[in-house]
Design a protein around this nucleic acid. Structure first.
Lengths: 228, 228
DNA sequence: GGTTTTATTCATCACCGTTGAATATCCGTG
DNA sequence: CACGGATATTCAACGGTGATGAATAAAACC
């Protein structure tokens, strides 16, 4: 696909003196061995990797391209992060921490919970950049899974309480997961184009119903008791 | 990871006479050039590729392994399918056609639609095998996206009709997409463990609310007019 | 029967992620 | 201060990947 764009390593002139040190564009000569001072290489690699992963995705981002962007040898990535997965893991851990905190929605009255949840999710994910790189990598999927189950579902069930709290939380997580999936991870044009107020209007009834206490008896009326 | 399992190509003895034809385990000698009869090679490749993709996923399935399983040269895959993507595309097209037909849910009365949809989705996906290979490949994600938007959403909006039909269909698609996502594509343990009757019980209220006509005026009653 | 088209094998390509060896600096201990 | 690991870096290579072009043989066509 876009191979030509990400290609930046001419693999060095094969002939000539073999052990001649590479002269970078900046003019400094990279020698073997530990360099002087504290070059903060690990951070530089992370900073170089992040936009590349976001732009081209996991697969199409090569370690050699990251190394070139960071101005270091590609072997340093394996040295510092163990593997390409390891590097990606650290990058996405940064990314995810930014966008996965729903605590704000859990403070407030029970009645506005549905709207608060929807608004917060759209707000956080609209400006998060996890979107691109998420679907293709199973590490991200694992993080997201544990987030949905461990963070959202559990805390929601606690917040709700009462009869069938876990079931109601699961219904809500299904809807919220569906929102994130169809709007960010694998965006349907129609869902991605809607402004967040429209999202709230569209999904609030369903989310309210998901959160509402389930009827116990065989055929009770549809009254929603606010307490439990 | 499981490299040792899928490795089956000793890359041939490098020495010896160079153009000596390879002798297969079956005893037949593969010569160059077009073979006799109609070996149905394309179908054999597809049949060999399907279980490998399902077992090991897209990434870990190598063209050489598929070729070895099919008993042909690996270059034949590029010849017949263009690329690895092309092969994967044909395999998943078969897979998807099996599990993505919701017509059955759209025949019947409007009242039981929610339950019919939920039951059909769980029934189809429980026995479908798209699960494994789905998340990691963007081709599958594209198919799934077009399916959700083009097939489910459009037909649902037609079926519903009336005011805000598209909006209600979008809410339903969000929930159904969330179900497929959290139960099959990236299964949460809790959602995947539930039997389908529980799924119906859990999600039916939310899906009903999503499908229900939205109120027009500032504070109309919650009466559901069946026609429009 | 001769020509073109199609199907196959083989050798090879560029590139990928990873690893081992060589090397140079840092840092703690004497 | 001397010195000896520990650490950080470059370089060269390895095995494996998907793809491609040349050689070749059967089929299909006229």
């Amino acid at each position: 696909m876009n191979k030509t764009e990400a290609r930046a390593l001419p693999t060095a002139p094969p002939a000539g003196s073999p052990a001649l040190p590479v002269r970078r564009a900046t003019g400094d000569v990279r020698r073997r061995g530990r360099p002087h001072g504290r070059p903060q290489t690990k951070a530089r690699i992370l900073a170089a990797a992040e936009p590349l992963f976001l732009e081209h995705g996991y697969r199409a981002t090569t370690l050699r391209a990251v190394a070139a962007a960071a101005g270091v040898d590609s072997a340093l990535i394996s040295y510092h992060f163990g593997s390409k997965r390891g590097l990606f893991g650290e990058v996405t851990q940064i990314q995810c921490a930014r966008a996965l905190d729903l605590t704000r929605a859990f403070t407030g009255d029970r009645d506005g919970l549905a709207e608060r949840l929807l608004d917060l999710v759209t707000e956080l994910w609209d400006e998060a950049e996890v979107n691109r790189l998420a679907v293709e990598n199973e590490e991200v999927m694992r993080v997201f899974r544990e987030y949905l189950e461990g963070e959202v579902l559990t805390r929601l069930a606690e917040y709700l309480g009462g009869h069938g709290a876990t079931r109601r939380a699961l219904a809500a997580v299904t809807l919220i997961g569906g929102l994130i999936f169809t709007r960010y991870l694998n965006p349907l044009p129609l869902a991605a184009a809607l402004p967040s107020e429209e999202i709230r209007r569209t999904l609030a009834p369903a989310l309210r119903a998901a959160l509402a206490p389930t009827v116990r008896g065989p055929r009770t009326a549809r009254a929603t008791r606010p307490g439990v």
